[in-house]
Design a protein around this nucleic acid. Structure first.
Lengths: 189, 189
DNA sequence: ACAAAATCTAAACATTTGTTATCGTTTTCC
DNA sequence: GGAAAACGATAACAAATGTTTAGATTTTGT
């Protein structure tokens, strides 16, 4: 749980006593590769913090097709935060790509934090801002970059992604078919 | 400025005295149709609140092409919030589509609010969460819906958008060319 | 260790979407 | 009020991307 504690300490100042009490609401949970941490069509009341491993976030459209919208790995918070915040049912599935070790932050922990941590609201603000910035940047890239350019960019952001997830999921993340990704990579030479 | 005050009151509880003091940092500003409120390649230290009118957010890619990424109208906060938060130069331009009346919230107002409003951090959290939810929903739609489906959806969200902005900007927002939007609309019959 | 499943590439073809050019209409701006 | 610009539709053509199928290789599960 120290990893979570460190991550929080990097965002806000938090006392030993506060941290202790906050962590009491949280617990560790492991998942096997391919496990679904969080399923769609259900209400979301937990946020995960990843200590080890990598997962993907995917969404299924009306034709039953899967789209990988996001990857998350060590030292990141992950959830269908949209559903968590709005109280609507989730549209996403979280699927472990490797054996995972996580810390679960139940809604109670987070609400307790808002009310009792000196900088609890600030922590919530920084997390929301962080993910807002991430999504805004992605939207910028979707509008202004070609799939190949986005592919190169992703390699800069996640240098080891190729060894951890199959390429057809990367293609899905880029919004193209795996066949097309093959073509694009070939053209690079 | 009452419109801004009301918008804030809907999100947090704020006393008369607090509101008074906060508003003292803000001021009204008007823009003519086609004016650029906020230019790209510069640092962002203001957030706008729209009292009247509508604007678009656009981004210019390396080939010099414009992409309309967002519309904002009455009772909404708008800025390159990404650049505002990160301290990086803006990638967006904000352009008035009609004569605009706005209230400017300078960075000082917002920072003062975080430190002095009882629920200042909470306000910041709610705004960031609101825009995160908006962007996440857009990304869901980009992955799972066709341009036509996104077009129909947009009409539900902004019923009067057609009377306020030209169609080629709507096409740009949808990520397609105006010619293609014409085609799509024709197929609907 | 071995059979089954998953993965990546490739080619041929189909579909979608973009590009360029044109035309008539509407809007804008002095 | 009138010239100029912006706008929306359309057609013909070009480019990008998806679909289907196949085959070779690797990974997975037991």
């Amino acid at each position: 749980m120290n990893t979570l504690r460190n991550a929080i300490s990097q965002m806000i100042s938090i006392s030993e006593a506060e941290a202790e009490e906050f962590m009491a609401f949280c617990y560790r949970k492991s998942f096997r590769k391919k496990a679904i941490l969080s399923d769609d069509d259900q209400f979301i009341n937990e946020v995960y913090f990843i200590e080890k491993g990598i997962l993907r976030v995917k969404i299924i459209d009306l034709d039953g097709r899967e789209h990988t919208t996001h990857f998350a790995s060590e030292n990141q918070f992950i959830a269908d935060y949209n559903a968590f915040l709005t109280g609507k049912k989730s549209r996403y599935q979280l699927e472990a790509m490797e054996d995972l070790e996580t810390v679960v932050l139940p809604r109670k922990a987070i609400e307790w934090g808002y009310q009792n941590l000196k900088e609890g609201e600030k922590l919530g603000r920084l997390v929301a801002e962080y993910y807002f910035i991430y999504l805004d940047t992605r939207i910028q890239h979707l509008y202004t970059l070609s799939p190949l350019e986005r592919y190169d960019l992703m390699n800069g952001l996640f240098p080891d992604i190729h060894n951890r997830v199959p390429q057809h999921m990367i293609a899905s993340y880029l919004g193209i078919t795996p066949i097309h990704l093959s073509r694009i990579k070939k053209q690079k030479d």
